[in-house]
């Protein structure tokens, strides 16, 4: 294995679940004899993450993202394969490892509901044995970055979801972890709170050089934070590389948007597949290789009728959606 901060080789996790049909008879039968089925949540994935990287971990619900994060943080024992984080085998849960790592789950709380966060921070300070001066410095920075001044002295149960999430972030970072696993850190938050959390994660990574692996269903999180993404589906790795190349690899077409004076009447189907038409604004899907040539022809042929034209990668959501729906090799004329 390399010197990477996170090293994963052929990691697997199989869950055994009991199943039964609906209805009383099936319920009674299940008392006597249980039907069990193995689910390969993670079916052998291999990757590495270097120090200071922010990597987006993408996949549809049930792809195995959270299971992988749980194994890497030490919560779950794998069924097979190897992993090392900061040189530790995570599921041994050695204190030396736990002190340098955090797992933040957007939909879970780790603070004590009935007391103000500031008091929970003190408890965490002792648990993680953070010296007083570093504690003050870290809390000061987190308070500033996350704008927590007003929030830390209220009982956690009196905070709104967004406020609580910010405080949860601070609580998860009291020990200044070198590795952070973030599972849906912006789930359920409004747009402005999402933007703040995103900005915070980027700034935190810049200031501390922490390595971050995050999952999110909001592609904006990924676009804003991750240069690199790892895509998994059905527990298997589909793509690992720069976010910028994902569209190129996974969607072999570009989108040309042409705006015409008299667009409502124009027929541009000879240049590519018309996928949308909004008054004079026409969106075409064109094979990646020939996109520049088609755009040039459009400019040439339409001349003054054209008021605007752009050639873009398809929206990242669309790329991901295609990957997950099995349409990886999108065809275009």
């Amino acid at each position: 294995m390399t010197d990477a901060v996170v090293e994963v080789r052929d990691l697997r996790k199989t869950f055994r679940v009991s199943e039964r049909q609906e209805g009383l008879a099936a319920t009674l039968r299940s008392f006597v004899r249980r039907q069990r089925r193995d689910i390969n949540a993670v079916a052998g994935i291999t990757f590495g993450i270097e120090a200071g990287e922010v990597v987006g971990f993408l996949g549809p619900n049930g792809a195995g993202k959270t299971t992988t994060l749980k194994m890497l943080s030490g919560l779950l024992y794998p069924t097979g394969g190897e992993a090392r984080v900061l040189g530790f085998v995570p599921w041994r849960r050695e204190n030396a490892y736990l002190q340098q790592m955090t797992l933040l789950m957007g939909n879970r709380t780790q603070l004590v509901w009935d007391i103000p966060a500031a008091d929970s921070f003190r408890v965490l300070q002792e648990i993680y044995r953070v010296p007083e001066d570093s504690f003050r410095k870290t809390v000061g920075e987190l308070t500033e970055l996350l704008e927590l001044q007003e929030l830390v002295h209220k009982p956690v149960r009196n905070l709104s979801l967004g406020e609580r999430m910010k405080v949860e972030f601070a609580a998860g970072l009291i020990q200044s972890p070198r590795v952070a696993f973030l599972d849906e850190p912006t789930i359920g938050l409004d747009i402005s709170m999402q933007v703040r959390i995103r900005r915070f994660v980027a700034e935190y990574n810049r200031r501390t050089g922490a390595t971050i692996l995050l999952t999110s269903h909001y592609m904006d999180d990924v676009v804003a934070l991750c240069k690199r993404v790892i895509v998994i589906h059905h527990g298997q790795l589909l793509y690992d590389g720069p976010l910028a190349d994902l569209a190129e690899r996974m969607a072999p077409f570009k989108v040309i948007v042409a705006t015409l004076h008299d667009g409502a009447a124009a027929d541009l189907s000879v240049y590519g597949t018309v996928v949308a038409r909004d008054e004079g604004r026409i969106t075409l899907k064109v094979d990646r290789q020939i996109a520049p040539e088609r755009a040039a022809r459009l400019v040439n042929d339409l001349g003054d009728r054209l008021t605007d034209i752009s050639v873009e990668d398809p929206p990242i959501e669309e790329v991901i959606d295609r990957v997950f729906s099995g349409e990886r090799v999108g065809t275009a004329p």
Partner: peptide
């Protein structure tokens, strides 16, 4: 409720 998880991931 999943409350044990964060506790298991602390060095205590």
């Amino acid at each position: 409720m999943g409350r044990l998880s964060p506790k298991l991931l602390r060095p205590l």
